[in-house]
């Protein structure tokens, strides 16, 4: 037994030695490789992977995010189509939970008359989670929805056949079928803004900075600080979609 163990260790040792030797002799060989398309190969340069943090305790439910999103992205102005929306949770004495999102929160929220005492209540902004393992991309039959190399999930509206399998596969209800183009649509993290150095419009207009946008892999950024300073949770973690929208102080009733 001892002998075998020794052999394995020796093999490991030589493996490591070889790796070190190569990297010392040819420093370029093991890092910073480009593929033939000029894109940096994974793990060689610092990758960008966009994500969003949401601080529940800062959200005042004004719905300005949902409103601005509709205007910025030409989302049909009907209460059936949303790229982002705000939910209100009201937990009553006895444990009953009331959730609503009138017109996705675009017109704000009106007070509700509840018969019983409210134990706690809060707002939860929702949007596409830009999952690292997106079920929508997995099921798209033609490659019309995809993950970009900076981790954003996009839809190719000129290629989508409108089968709506992605809408069925999304556990978060983040997708809808555009009634005019008849193709799937969803939040793009305002891709047209972030490529120009702006933040998504929902982040721009949030008056209380409840939404924080940035690179999840960056060294120092508001998002990375948010993720370090808070106990964070994602939605439906058991589905293993690995969402990149992170919530601080999320209640267990939020699904």
């Amino acid at each position: 037994m001892d002998k075998i163990d020794f052999k394995i260790k020796r093999r490991e040792f030589f493996g490591k030695f070889f790796f070190v030797a190569v990297s010392v002799l040819f420093p370029g060989a093991l890092k910073g490789k480009k593929d033939e398309k000029g894109h940096f190969v994974r793990n060689t340069l610092r990758e960008v992977s966009w994500g969003m943090g949401i601080e529940i305790d800062k959200c005042i439910g004004c719905g300005r995010c949902a409103d601005a999103c509709k205007k910025e992205n030409d989302v049909p102005p009907y209460p059936f189509f949303f790229r982002t929306w705000v939910e209100r949770y009201i937990i009553l004495e006895g444990g009953e939970v009331i959730v609503d999102s009138p017109n996705g929160g675009v017109n704000g929220f009106k007070p509700r008359a509840e018969e019983r005492k409210i134990i706690k209540s809060f707002f939860v902004p929702k949007l596409c989670n830009h999952c690292d393992k997106p079920p929508c991309v997995q099921v798209c039959p033609v490659g019309a929805t995809f993950k970009t190399n900076d981790g954003v999930i996009l839809v190719d509206s000129k290629y989508c056949i409108g089968c709506r399998y992605c809408i069925q596969a999304c556990p978060y209800g983040a997708r809808f079928l555009h009634p005019e183009t008849r193709t799937a649509e969803k939040c793009t993290f305002c891709y047209h803004r972030i490529v120009k150095g702006l933040v998504p419009v929902c982040v721009e207009v949030c008056p209380t900075q409840a939404r924080i946008f940035g690179d999840t892999k960056g060294r120092a950024s508001p998002l990375v600080r948010f993720m370090r300073m808070n106990k964070i949770r994602v939605l439906k973690p058991y589905l293993n979609t690995e969402p990149k929208v992170f919530y601080a102080d999320l209640d267990m009733e939020v699904k």
């Binding site: 033609v142 490659g143 989508c160 056949i161 089968c163 709506r164 193709t183």
Partner: peptide, 15 residues
């Protein structure tokens, strides 16, 4: 399909 004219894509670029 929302866009039946694109249905051939299922054969051409199947995911």
């Amino acid at each position: 399909l929302g866009r039946p004219e694109r249905s051939l894509e299922i054969f051409l670029t199947p995911n």
